[in-house]
Amino acid sequence: MLRLACPYCGERDYVEFLYGGDASQKMPALDDDMDNWVDYVFFRDNPKGEHAEFWQHQHGCRQWLRVVRHTVTHAVMSVRPAREALPATEEKQVEVA
C-alpha cells in the first residue's frame, strides 16, 4: 500500500490524499498561446521512474504537497510542501520542464 509522510500530520495511507497532477511541468503564462495551454492541461507523458506529483492531504491538514515517487515501484523519495521548490539534487533526477 502506498503511504505518504505528510510533513504536517505524519505518515498516512494514500486514501487520505487526492492526486493533483504533474508537478514537473511549469504552468504557461496566463496570456500565453492557447496551444501551450492545451498541451499543459490535456497532454501528459507517462514517465517510468522517479516523477514529481502534486497531492493534497484532503482528509487531514488539506495542504498541497509535492511528492517525488517512482511510478513503477511506488517508492516515495520525498514529500514536501508544494510551495517549496525542489532541491537541486532532485531537479536533476526528475524531469522539470
Rank of each mutant, 00 (worst) to 15 (best):
M1H: 13
L2G: 06
R3Y: 13
L4P: 06
A5Q: 07
A5Y: 00
P7W: 00
Y8C: 04
G10R: 03
E11D: 06
R12V: 07
R12L: 14
E16W: 12
E16F: 12
E16G: 02
F17I: 09
L18I: 07
L18R: 09
Y19M: 08
Y19H: 15
G21D: 06
G21V: 06
D22G: 06
D22L: 04
D22E: 10
S24M: 01
K26Q: 12
K26S: 12
K26W: 11
M27K: 05
M27G: 00
A29M: 12
L30W: 13
D32I: 04
D33P: 06
D33N: 15
M34S: 13
W37H: 09
W37T: 01
V38F: 10
V38T: 09
D39P: 01
Y40P: 01
V41M: 14
F42D: 11
F42L: 15
F42K: 09
F42H: 11
F43C: 05
R44V: 05
D45N: 08
N46K: 12
P47S: 09
K48V: 15
K48D: 12
G49D: 10
G49K: 08
G49R: 08
E50I: 08
E50R: 06
E50M: 10
H51R: 05
H51Y: 08
H51T: 04
E53C: 14
F54N: 01
Q56R: 15
Q56S: 11
H57P: 03
H57A: 03
Q58F: 13
H59I: 01
G60E: 10
R62A: 08
R62G: 03
R62T: 11
Q63W: 02
Q63I: 04
W64Q: 07
L65S: 04
V67N: 00
H70M: 03
T71C: 02
T73D: 07
H74F: 05
V76W: 05
V76I: 12
S78P: 00
S78Y: 05
R80G: 02
P81L: 14
A82F: 03
E84S: 01
L86E: 01
L86W: 01
L86G: 01
P87D: 13
P87Y: 12
E91K: 14
K92Q: 09
Q93C: 09
V94W: 00
